[in-house]
């Protein structure tokens, strides 16, 4: 990595940070408000009626999932929105005619997504601790999983943006794929409580592993193997990163 590359990388991250910071009402605030509503409804209105899950109150049990959801959606939406918007305005050409290596373009955009996810994740956690005293079992592990998760979904967002032909296309995956997988990934319930067939189906949902491992970081509750979960996340990152790089090198979606 040369000095020029470092300047280029910092420029992309700065641009990405300023982009979502400038429109924080659209990018940061909604997740905070949603978190407040979840805590109010599940913590005060419904939670007590459900009871406890594995020695944790219902709200304590679902809090890690409620934090990882905005981390997933914000990292994804940040990159898909930013890169597709650049393609739509053709301003991405500024980057493509410059000597920035493809991997720096990819890591730069992904880092922007990770940064937004970290800020949103921290903001929703702050909202949480106002209402619930929830200790974190392993802070470095939680941060590690946060970064890995945000990295994974940022790359996915990048690939979606490169393939998208309209603004509709950048909403299809979040609406029809990410949301169902997230809500069916054990955020609001323990997968072990499902009938066996649905437990087996859940094994094919990568977000179930992320929710589970994130819950372990918060509560110390190991519902799936930590090593299996980490392996799945890292394998997905490697595969998607390679796809993203190939797309940039071949110019898919960005060159004629």
């Amino acid at each position: 990595m040369t000095a020029d590359h470092i300047v280029a990388f910092k420029t992309i991250i700065r641009k990405e940070f300023l982009r979502f910071a400038r429109i924080w009402i659209q990018t940061i605030l909604p997740s905070v408000i949603t978190m407040f509503l979840y805590i109010t409804i599940f913590g005060n209105f419904i939670g007590d009626k459900i009871g406890s899950i594995k020695e944790f109150s219902y709200i304590e049990y679902i809090i890690p999932g409620l934090i990882i959801i905005p981390i997933i959606t914000n990292s994804y939406m940040n990159v898909v929105g930013s890169f597709y918007s650049g393609r739509f305005q053709k301003s991405t050409e500024e980057l493509l005619v410059s000597p920035v290596p493809n991997w720096i373009i990819l890591v730069g955009y992904v880092s922007g997504g990770v940064l937004r996810a970290l800020i949103v994740g921290f903001a929703v956690y702050v909202v949480t601790i106002f209402f619930i005293d929830i200790p974190i079992h392993n802070i470095p592990f939680v941060l590690f999983i946060t970064v890995l998760t945000a990295f994974l979904f940022s790359i996915a967002g990048f690939i979606n943006a490169a393939y998208a032909k309209s603004f509709d296309d950048i909403n299809i995956v979040p609406t029809f794929v990410l949301n169902p997988l997230t809500y069916l990934g054990g955020t609001f319930y323990s997968i072990e409580s499902l009938p066996q067939i649905w437990q087996d189906v859940s094994l094919f949902n990568p977000i179930a592993y992320i929710v589970s491992v994130f819950r372990y970081g918060f509560l110390g509750l190991e519902e799936t193997s930590i090593y299996v979960s980490l392996t799945i996340i890292i394998v997905f990152i490697i595969i998607l990163f390679k796809i993203g790089l190939i797309m940039l090198e071949k110019g898919i979606g960005i060159k004629n």
Binding site: T11, K15, Q89, E94
Partner: peptide, 22 residues
């Protein structure tokens, strides 16, 4: 064709493009 980022100040555009060139 115009291929400018429509949402950022034009000086920022220049600094960004400069950054891409190191």
């Amino acid at each position: 064709e115009y291929n400018l980022n429509q949402f950022i100040p034009i000086e920022e555009t220049m600094l960004n493009v400069g950054g891409y060139f190191g």
